[in-house]
Structures are given as structure tokens and as C-alpha cells.
Design a protein around this nucleic acid. Structure first.
Lengths: 260, 260
DNA sequence: CGACTTATTGACAACCGTCAAGACTCGTGG
DNA sequence: CCACGAGTCTTGACGGTTGTCAATAAGTCG
């Protein structure tokens, strides 16, 4: 896994000056922080952002433990945040899809506690942290909207935590697949029974706390039982009901409900 | 475990009308949401709160899945939030100490995704959600401060998640013990090598994703190796260095750093 | 073609869960 | 005062789930 420095990686296919473009027509606005903002607030936010940065697959967006000078909104592509344990093993905390924010765990602190890395090529809306925080201290709607985003994020982590703590291997994998599919559906990025899923088995393993080998066995079981197939970057859900039954899936935690 | 309805339980030792008392002298202010607020903002918040509610040990503060009409700040005592899996097993998500907020995961949504239950007797500062959210939409400092609180909370969940995913039983237990001790130290509720810890082994088991029996074995190992002792509601850390080594502990995620 | 990554499978061992039993504490009631 | 029962802690035996190690297959890119 090649870890390019964010700046270097960023420059490789670098920032188009789309800062000029307004936030109102942003394709991910509906799923992002910006949804509830008024016209005036949006134009203020548009002045905060410094443009779009495009990173290649497998590049580092935020280095864990280092100072994070910007927050990001994914305009396109997949990423994940992760912790590295003292003995070098990796735990994926969350997968990030278009409209998600990166770096929210750095707010209110100096260093980013966790690293963020791209999976596919990713286009990021760059929001320099000092300027964004200044604006949030002035615009209550933005700050509250931000709090709602973090709160939803927290709920997803809690759900994953319950999964790792109290479910067997195949149930954990099934739960993750259902979650990703549901989140893609919300964004119109999935059919009712299938979607593109650019994850390696190693990603899934690190997300659900299993080894790659055992994750493979769990996926094989799901396939053998006719529940779901993950192949060539595409997930197909053959028996949604059985997957839900197996994993104890409940989509309530994904419904961010009534943002202002 | 007797589950009294919060209102009923609340009435049993009921709300002293300490709403009159200002928030400025609040003992937990230094560790709570309120820390960065100005004099004027504090007095507005004081008008939001409806008083203090006292609950007995083992009573339910928030029912998972039900509508949450208030947020709370713990003034005194221990509580925990938890998820219940489909097959009835419990996963403790977080332990809550004086100054912590309860119900933050309900912000921006209608129902509380997870339940909250008291461990000891608990005194709660009650903040009705509609009034608090109205104030947050007006007062940017409060909303931003709230976002920082949620973000810190999220970091703690992420750390626990990495623990469950990538650490062995005794390391998970050691990590939890170190975290609780560190959080108590921040509040002046612990000595450098020991503290009161009113947890049953079942609480620890449900927090780190183990059975009670195996948690007991892990605790026995820590005791046998001379690392830590948990006995009669008191935790003693005999060899902090070895505990840190074993669990990969790093306290960076607890440092909420520079709130405004 | 050869190096590399990823997926897959098998054998075996370690870890952890399950089940069962006993010890200890504490409050209650006789 | 003691007996009793409930809740918690502790220990042992055993089995299942998962991790480890190793090898192979399949695909990708130079």
C-alpha cells in the first residue's frame, strides 16, 4: 500500500480552480452538511472553500497524529478512516462516500486522531479549518448542521461497535454490506439489489475486525447460502430478508431525520 | 435489572428546583459543553434548563428507539449508553461521567438510537431538546461547542472500536481501565494509581465485547501479573507502564484540546 | 514472461464462549 | 442469632469460532 504524502498526491492530478463555482449546484449538497443552509450562508461557505482537490486511489488524505489544517467534503469517490494499533494492525473505522465529511474528528483539537485514505480516485471539496471554524462560530445554522453530521457519524460508529462486540463473523460482514448498500441507495448510487463496491476483502476484514482469510470464508458462506455475492467490485444482494435476519440489521440509525 | 420508567424513577427522589441556581457555579462546568460559554450565553442556557433530576441506580434515562425529549448533563454519578442486538445481547457503547452529556446521539433525529441507564445514583441537569436546539440555532458558540463535544465523544467510540476489532481480551480490558482512570483523573476523581470504579464485571464484559466469564479470567490475569486489581468497587493500577504496553494505550484521543 | 496483488482453500492451534458448579457477599425474614 | 435466597464473582472442562501458517490459483501490470 503506497502512502503518498497528501500534498504530493494532491499535486499529481491537482486542484482545478472550481472554487469559483457556487455551492448551490453542488451534486452532493443533498447529503452533506450544506443541505439546510440558506442562500446567504451557502455563499459564505463558498468563500471558505479553496477549491477541489483530486487524489488518486490509495493516497493519504489525513495523516493520523498530524495536524489537520483542513476539512473535506467528498464530491466523488470512496475513502476510509482508520486507526493503527500499537502492534501495527489496522482498524477501519468508517467508509466515506460522496457527501460525507472527512476530518470532523479533528474539530476542537489540534491533531487528527485518525488517518484517512482514499480507495478510489477521490475529488474533495477543501475547507481550511481555521476559516471554517471561524465561520461556524459566527453562523449558528452551520455549526448546528455540523453537529448533526457528527452526531449521525457517531451513531454509525456505535452501530459498528455493537456489531464487533456482539455478532459472529458472517453476521458482521452481512451487516456491513447492508449498511454500505443502504447508504449508496440514499445517494442514488445503487440498484435495489446490487451496487458497485470497490472494496478489497482486506478492507472488509479491517472494518469488521477479522482476518482476511476468515472474511473470505464468511463471504463464501454468504455466497453458498445464496444471500449475497461480492465479485469484481460489485455487490449483489440475493436474499435481503435473510441477510437482515442473519445480521440483525435495522436502518434506523442511518436516517438523519429532520435537519433544520 | 429493574427498569423504571425515567419519569417514575425521577419522581422517586425528585427534581429539586435548582433551575434558579445559575450555571456559572456549576461544579461540572469545566468538563462540559458549558466551558467556553460567555456570561450572557450561560444565562441563556440557564433559562433552557428545567432543573435537576435525580435517578436511582439501575434506572433508565433514555429508552432506545423512543422519542428523546431532553438532553442531560451529568452533575453527579455514573451512567452508560448501550445498544441491544436483535438476539437480546447488550453492547455498552460508552460510560458517562460527571460533566458528560447524555442524548447527544438524538440530536438531528426524532428517536434516540440507543438507551442510557444509570449505574450509581445520578443527578442530571435537564435540557429540553426543543428549547436547547432553538438556542443552538441562534447561538453559534453553543452549537460549535456542542459539535466539539460530540466530536470528542466520537473519538472515544472510535478508540473502543479499534480495541474490539484488533486487541485480545486482556488488552481490551486493560485499555478500558486505563481510559476510565484517565477520564476520572481529568475530573479530579482519581488518585494517580487508583480510583473508585462502581462497575460490575458484567458492565466491563458488555463494554469490551466479552462474556462475563472471560472478562473475569482477563481481570484475574491482570491481577496475577501484578498489573491492576479491581475489587470492591475500587481500581488499583499497580504497573501503569505494563498496562500501557499491553493495551497500546495512548491518551491523545481524550485531550479535547482547545475549545474556543 | 515474470513480479505482484488479490482471492481461495486446508490443516492446525489458540482464543474465547458455553455450560456447570461452587464460593462469597449481602439483605431479608424467621 | 441463624437460615435462606439473590446477586456477583470465580473456576474448570469442553467445544466452537477464529487466527495463523502455508500453499495454490487467478488476475494485473510491467
Amino acid at each position: 500500500m503506497d502512502r503518498l504524502h497528501p500534498v504530493v498526491a494532491g499535486l499529481s492530478t491537482t486542484s482545478r480552480a472550481s472554487a469559483i463555482q457556487g455551492c448551490e449546484t453542488c451534486v452532493v449538497r443533498r447529503w452533506s452538511l450544506c443541505r439546510p443552509l440558506s442562500h446567504d450562508e451557502l455563499s459564505e461557505l463558498a468563500r471558505v472553500r479553496t477549491g477541489t482537490r483530486v487524489l488518486g486511489p490509495g493516497s493519504s488524505v489525513i495523516e493520523g497524529g498530524e495536524e489537520a489544517d483542513a476539512l473535506f467534503v467528498i464530491e466523488n469517490g470512496w475513502a476510509f478512516s482508520h486507526a493503527i494499533t500499537a502492534d501495527g494492525r489496522r482498524q477501519i473505522l468508517e467508509f466515506h462516500l460522496p457527501g460525507d465529511m472527512l476530518g470532523i474528528e479533528a474539530v476542537g483539537r489540534v491533531e487528527a486522531p485518525h488517518g484517512v485514505e482514499t480507495i478510489t480516485e477521490v475529488a474533495l471539496c477543501v475547507l481550511p479549518r481555521p476559516r471554517l471554524e471561524t465561520l461556524m462560530r459566527r453562523e449558528a445554522t452551520l455549526a448546528f448542521s455540523f453537529a448533526c453530521v457528527v452526531s449521525r457519524d457517531r451513531a454509525m460508529l456505535a452501530e459498528r461497535l455493537a456489531s464487533l462486540g456482539r455478532r459472529a463473523a458472517s453476521a458482521r460482514v452481512a451487516h456491513l454490506l447492508l449498511e454500505l448498500h443502504a447508504r449508496l441507495m440514499q445517494r442514488g448510487m445503487a440498484e435495489h439489489d446490487n451496487c458497485a463496491l470497490p472494496l478489497k476483502q482486506a478492507h472488509i476484514a479491517d472494518a469488521v475486525g477479522l482476518t482476511v482469510e476468515h472474511t473470505n470464508r464468511a463471504l463464501a458462506e454468504l455466497r453458498r447460502e445464496g444471500l449475497a455475492t461480492l465479485r469484481d467490485g460489485r455487490l449483489t444482494l440475493h436474499d435481503r430478508r435473510a441477510l437482515i435476519e442473519l445480521s440483525g440489521w435495522d436502518d434506523a440509525y442511518l436516517k438523519s431525520a429532520r435537519l433544520p
